[in-house]
Each structure stands twice: as structure tokens, then as C-alpha cells.
Amino acid sequence: MPTRPRPQRLGHVVLNVRDLQASVRFYTEIVGLEVSDHIEDQMAFLRCGQDHHDLALAQIPPGDPQHGATYVPGRPGLEHFSYQLGSLAEIEEAARYLQEKGVDIVRGIGKHGPGENLFLVFKDPDGNYCEFYADMVQVTPAQPYTPRVWKNDLAAFDQWHFDKFVVPPPEWGPKR
């Protein structure tokens, strides 16, 4: 029988935004975060500490009906929040536990490109997306990091190409 997950801490947050560039300017110039990476013109990853990112911003397509909406999936605002687990083994155990408890898993287990973190995303009772993650790149004076722009492709989303997904993978292709 799988055991209940034991998160180490609250991790990063991902927000859907109407204007990625304006949001990046706000969070860097006003809030004081640093850019770690971009996925073309679709996402930006920012940090204030050692984690590769503690905030990620995802562009809502301008033609999307939710572009001007409020709290619904794909709308401006929260896409997901995350809790850190210690390893792939803990994430695999968490996946079994969630499945046993009938929790709706949305995506994962996978490994993102930017940040190289492992991920497992699931829904809470209100439909909010919650993520367990592990093994994120750490940025320190001894381990500096040079930001890069990733292509908006499968390698940026899941370096393992859905091989470890415990649910059917999404139809894949950049959304433009």
C-alpha cells in the first residue's frame, strides 16, 4: 500500500498571463526577480532564491476566449502551485497514492526542460492544479546559471517524452 506524500516545502507557482513581456517586466523591474529561462514567447521562468524558478509565467493566446476572463482554467491567474518532494521514487509513490485515493492526475510523471524538475500534476477538490516536483536546478554563486531560450517543443515540456506518464499524455504540439 503506498504511503501518503511528505512534502518538504511549498515550491513554485505558475501564472497564466495576458501579456508575457509586460508581466516579465513587472516581476523583474518592480518585484525584483531574475529571469532563469524562456520557452520562446510562451513562458518565462523567474527566481528570487536558489531554485531555477519560483514563479513561471505562461502566455494565454490572444485569440483565446479566456484571454479576458477570470477564474477558469486557461484564464489569467493561477495555473498551478507546487510542493517539493525528495526524489523520483517519492513522486512515483505519490502517484500510486493519488491513484489509490481516486485523485484526478492531470499530467506526469515527467521531467521539464527549463529547471529540469520532475513533475506530477493533479487536481484538488476544487479543480485547482497542484504539483509534486523534485530535482530542480539550483542556482548559487558556486553553480551560476546562464538563461536560455528553449524551443516550444516536447523536450521543453517533457524530456522523457511521456515515457513515465501515469495518465494518457496530452495531444502534443505548440499552441499558437
Score class of each variant (00 low, 15 high):
Asn16Met: 12
Glu93Ala: 13
Gly110Cys: 07
Val137Ser: 09
Asp124His: 08
Gln8His: 08
Gly11Asp: 02
Glu171Ala: 15
Asp135Trp: 12
Thr28Gly: 01
Val167Gln: 11
His52Ser: 01
Lys101Gly: 00
Leu78Ser: 08
Cys48His: 06
Gln50Lys: 09
Ile60Asn: 03
Pro61Glu: 02
Pro144Lys: 11
Pro147Trp: 03
Val13Lys: 00
Arg25Trp: 05
Thr3Val: 12
Thr3Gln: 10
Ser23Phe: 04
Val167Pro: 06
Val24Lys: 04
Glu40Ala: 02
Phe122Gly: 06
Glu90Phe: 04
Gln8Phe: 02
Ala58Phe: 13
Val24Thr: 02
Ile109Gly: 08
Ala156Ser: 10
Ala134Met: 10
Asp104Ser: 14
Val14Asn: 13
Tyr27Lys: 01
Phe165Cys: 14
Asp104Val: 02
Asp153Ser: 06
Phe132Asp: 03
Ala156Trp: 05
Ala89Val: 11
Tyr83Arg: 08
Pro168Tyr: 09
Asp135Cys: 11
Phe132Asn: 03
Ala69Asn: 03
Gly32Arg: 01
Glu131Met: 07
Ile91Asn: 00
Val14Tyr: 03
Pro76Asn: 02
Val103Ser: 07
Glu34Pro: 04
Val167Lys: 07
Cys130Ile: 12
Asp126Val: 11
Leu118Pro: 00
Gln159Phe: 03
Asp153Asn: 07
Asp163Trp: 04
Ile39Val: 13
Leu118Gln: 02
His38Pro: 00
Asp54Ala: 01
Val14Ala: 15
Gly49Ile: 06
Gly77Trp: 15
His12Trp: 02
Ile109Thr: 10
Arg47Asp: 00
Leu33Arg: 00
Leu118Phe: 07
Tyr97Glu: 01
His161Asp: 12
Gly77Ser: 14
Ser82Asp: 01
Val24Leu: 06
Asn117Leu: 06
Ala58Ile: 14
Asn152Val: 00
Leu46Phe: 01
Gln21Leu: 14
Asp163Pro: 04
Ala95Trp: 10
Val166Leu: 03
Tyr129Thr: 09
Glu79Ile: 15
Arg148Ile: 12
Val103Phe: 10
Asp126Ser: 11
Leu78Gln: 10
Gly113Ile: 10
Ser87Asn: 11
Val13Asn: 07
Gly127Phe: 08
Thr3Ala: 07
Arg148Tyr: 07
Val14Cys: 14
Ala58Glu: 08
His38Arg: 14
Phe162Asn: 13
Met136Ser: 07
Gln42Thr: 04
His161Cys: 09
Asp54Met: 02
Glu131Val: 01
Ile109Arg: 05
Ala22Lys: 06
Asp158Thr: 08
Tyr71Cys: 11
His161Pro: 14
Pro114Tyr: 03
Val35Asp: 05
Ala69Phe: 05
Lys101Asn: 06
Gln99Asp: 06
Ile105Cys: 11
Ile30Lys: 14
